[in-house]
Amino acid sequence: MSRALAAAIAALAVAACSSTPIADAPSAPQAAIAETAPPPPSRPAHPDLSGFWSLNRGKPVRDPALAAKLPADTVIVDDTGGPELPIGDYGGLKPKPEALAIAKAWKPADDMTLDKVCAPPSIIYALQGPFPIEIFQGTELIVMKLEYYDMVRIIFMNRAEHLPPEVPHTKVGDSIGRWEGDTLVVDTTHLLAATVTNNGLFHSDNARVVERFRLGADGKTLNATQEFEDPDTLENRGVRFITWTARAGDHVFPYECDPRFAENYNK
């Protein structure tokens, strides 16, 4: 009797520790394991955009699926990444008279002061810059860290309406997101006035941004469009195409802007 019990215990131990199925193991313990095991992995409902994304050098990919979503009157602003538009060139954007007057009066040196040099742009200029981003994707929220000026965006996936108008505006604004098939669509309002092209053209506090993010076929490229419109400063609507490449194991660095740089322009 005791020998039989010892043999049964040994068989159970082997069955529990073995990584391969044992054909003649008792059925009761297997059933118990089956009851507590997690369900088999299912295909994620949406693509996972999580990770570190380094901005591509050169021209961004113009993903036809994203381009097809652009309204007909949208002009492509072709300054993504390092290059910047010269003074007086707004990349096809048509400033309204007041905004154009401000742009023409703009002097680059005016910005190089201790109190202004560390003020970040809004996401309209910041996202296309040659700085990486890091995405943390959840179901309720998606967090996007920009290396540029340590900006952090929170995209609310659990909200269909924007915040009330009286809520303070910021450089990252109020972003609400939704999935359209394999594309993350982000709608942003509540932005603070800031530069559009870094050469004197500003958007107002009433700008609105619609972004679409979609993985490339290899899963290692992230393509986006960032449309923006501003009834106060622009006659037409603009868009930038942006492309990043995944880099596993990397993370955004702290930016920690130091205004002493402005001293170079005041000597």
Partner: peptide, 22 residues
């Protein structure tokens, strides 16, 4: 009024260094 308000906003909003300008 809009122009005046926008000029005031723009004055504090612009802060980024422009390579092409310098």
């Amino acid at each position: 009024c809009f122009a005046a308000a926008f000029l005031a906003c723009a004055g504090v909003a612009e802060a980024h260094h422009s390579f092409a300008a310098f």
